[in-house]
Amino acid sequence: MTSGFQASSAGPACTSCAIYNSANLAKLGVETGDYDYVAAVAGNPNTGKSTVFNALTGLRQHVGNWPGKTVARAEGGFTYRGLGYKLVDLPGTYSLLSTSNDEEIARDFLLFGRPDVTIAVVDSTRLERNLNLVLQILQITDRVVVALNLMDESQRHGITIDVRHLGRELGVPVVPMAARKGEGLPELLEAVEQVATRQPATSVRRVKQRNAALERAVATLSDKLGQAFPGLPNTRWVALRLLEGDPSTEQAVRDGTLGDLGRGAAEAGSARPTGTAAR
């Protein structure tokens, strides 16, 4: 299967290449006991999210053409270049802002599960509508890899995407893929490793509020949150939730769980990777 979309330098994807064959990627199925990093898979419904999850873990989870197919979190694992990753499949959602059960699960996991990497799976045939979720994820975490999936389909539909430019705009790695065919998988693994093992990017896209008064309020509250919870990585997002009066965020502020988040993030940034990688 030849495909011209590999904008990145790795050349044509080949499922028999050593790069992600048995040596580097031993598919572990559900054995996730000893892992070095936690990776979450998020995305809109119908983006091939579960296909990406399955391609990485070898777990044969049913891939439904439906929203919310995976209501409970599916978990799996894989190893890549000697490092173990626990992979968590989040429910497919259009947004993280509303109050549906699925969205709450996804949002809470990103916020409290503190994944080392979040793989945001995106349907390349409908980029604009998918970016809504990606931009929301970027407000919560900057450790993100965008898996630009279904590239074979968008190509068929005559859609061309400037992958490099998209990566610059978002400030995180963007990997073009056709997960069903296994194309782009080596590049995805590479990007996941990069984000997991290195300091997070500093140029991540953060949506500015168009309403000036709101933007000022967010900035003010975000500062205060930063002082109260040093190390909290997503003060702007928390500030927005507080302004909206979101009960679970208010609770996290009141009982101090938000503080653990800050400490956790600080630890994850320094100690964790080196501490366990030697295993």
Binding site: Y94, S95, L97, S98, T99, E128, R129, N132
Partner: peptide, 11 residues
Amino acid sequence: GTQRRRLMDLG
């Protein structure tokens, strides 16, 4: 309310 949000989430 939530109905409004739903529609907006759908774009």
